[in-house]
């Protein structure tokens, strides 16, 4: 709890104009990932700026999702997976022995490719995270958390009359926003999104993208996407991955208008991938 409180102040720090406002939220240095003997990522160095959207693009199997899953240590759940190098969140090594992975995942929320609400009520979906992390004082506080989370995810108006109905009964787009609300409920600093719109129709996609825009005010977002248009629309910074290497990273505009690397150029021109 205390940890979360301090990180919350750290988050507001750049807004209040403190000197280190430019310091990146997440830094990755020489990150290599191995699945058994096979190496999936090679020496990735990437800074994720705070309160902005960073898009990870690249063809299938390029390692962008693998990299994303390093940021909240979801790769820990794969027994043969091994990560080397250093990843820091607010200058704290997230692979440090003393760091509690459970707390890390509360600070770094995640939204998955396929909407995966728990087969429980909408209310319980949101309430689950705060409950297990002991963020809830009493019943009214919990109701407050649920309401603000749903509001932030732009879902409150649509579901306020049926928060006790199952979350699985919502439409695909609503389910995905429910998952975003669930991630927000544990008061994270960073939200990771792994192709959050690939299972959604264009209208639902537009809503989620709009939501990402709004969330950027308060959260650092890293999004993996297959759609270059989406990367262009939602992100400020884009990183292009190719067969395990981070080929090029820069401001989104620069990557799409004036890519430096031939491979980036070919990919965004649609020559492969």
């Amino acid at each position: 709890m205390e940890q979360i409180a301090t990180s919350a102040t750290a988050e507001t720090a750049p807004m209040s104009g403190v000197a280190n406002g430019e310091a990146p939220k997440v830094t990755a240095r020489d990150v290599c990932v191995f699945y058994g003997a096979k190496q999936a990522l090679f020496d990735v160095n990437l800074d994720v700026p705070r309160n902005s959207v960073t898009a990870l693009i690249g063809p299938s199997g390029c390692g962008k999702s693998t990299f994303l899953r390093c940021l909240n240590r979801m790769n820990d759940t794969i027994p043969i997976c091994r990560v080397t190098g250093k990843i820091e969140l607010d200058e704290q090594d997230i692979y440090d022995r003393d760091l509690d992975v459970v707390e890390l995942r509360a600070r770094v929320g995640m939204v998955f490719q396929k909407p995966n609400p728990f087969p429980k009520s909408i209310f319980d979906n949101i309430a689950y995270g705060p409950r297990i992390h002991g963020l809830v004082r009493d019943k009214t506080h919990l109701e407050e958390i649920v309401e603000t989370s749903l509001e932030k995810a732009g879902l409150w108006k649509e579901v306020k009359d049926r928060v006790h109905e199952p979350g699985t009964g919502l439409s695909g787009g609503q389910q995905q926003r429910l998952c975003i609300a669930r991630a927000i409920a544990t008061t994270p600093d960073v939200i990771l999104m792994d192709e959050p719109c690939s299972a959604l129709d264009p209208i639902a996609t537009a809503k989620v993208e709009e939501l990402i825009h709004e969330l950027r005010q308060n959260y650092t977002i890293v999004i993996v996407t297959h759609s270059m248009q989406q990367a262009r629309r939602v992100s400020q910074k884009t990183a292009f991955f190719h067969i395990g290497y981070l080929v090029e990273v820069g401001d989104t505009e620069q990557i799409f208008e004036n890519p430096q690397d031939k491979r980036t150029q070919d990919y965004i021109m649609g020559r492969f991938g």
């Binding site: 909240n72 979801m74 759940t77 459970v102 707390e103 890390l104 995942r105 509360a106 929320g109 995640m110 939204v111 998955f112 396929k114 995966n116 609400p117 728990f118 087969p119 689950y128 995270g129 297990i132 992390h133 998952c179 669930r182 991630a183 409920a185 544990t186």
Partner: peptide, 26 residues
């Protein structure tokens, strides 16, 4: 479905919480 485990781990549930809160009931 593994997506349920991911969802639970993603919000910071421990392995045991994932098992008892989500996997076993399902």
């Amino acid at each position: 479905p593994p997506s349920i485990r991911e969802a639970a781990l993603g919000v910071g549930a421990s392995k045991m919480q994932t098992l008892f809160h989500h996997v076993l009931p399902l």
